[in-house]
């Protein structure tokens, strides 16, 4: 039973994913089905339509392998070897610098505002 329950709980996760994909296709939404499925499941949990314990161990199982699922897409870099030779190398530099700017700006803003509001609550 220890292994069967998490495996069975992959079924509702997949069902929410399919529902998201279907909604995306049907209404031609600009968001990918997976993000729509994510929002559907989150709302279903918030409204207590779907109980947490019927999906929690399944989510722990699939999320333990999250990094694995990126690998086939990242291997796609091999098709762009030529572009990144010469001047194209700067594109990599741009991605790195711009990513760190975005990370610093968002992290700093969130931290600053949360500390500011925390302090105000102390008084």
């Amino acid at each position: 039973m220890k292994y069967i329950i998490p495996l069975l709980q992959l079924i509702p996760i997949y069902a929410f994913y399919l529902a998201g994909e279907w909604l995306q296709l049907f209404f031609d939404l600009p968001l990918p089905g997976s993000i729509i499925g994510f929002l559907l499941l989150f709302v279903a949990l918030l409204l207590k339509i779907y109980p947490l314990q019927w999906i929690e161990s399944g989510s722990r199982l699939i999320l333990a392998f999250l990094p694995l699922f990126f690998i086939p897409a990242t291997v796609g870099v091999m098709d762009y070897g030529e572009l990144f030779a010469g001047k194209g190398m700067w594109l990599i530099v741009i991605v790195i610098v711009s990513t760190l700017l975005a990370m610093g700006a968002s992290g700093w803003t969130s931290q600053y505002i949360s500390r500011f509001t925390d302090k105000k609550e102390d008084h």
Binding site: I13, E21, P32, S34, L45, R60, I62, F65, F69, P72
Partner: peptide, 22 residues
């Protein structure tokens, strides 16, 4: 074969709703 594994990324993104809910 890689696509079989890549297909699981969608459901895994859906499963991220659970840690968020908690």
């Amino acid at each position: 074969g890689g696509d079989w594994i890549a297909q699981l990324l969608g459901p895994a993104v859906v499963a991220l709703a659970i840690p968020l809910y908690k």
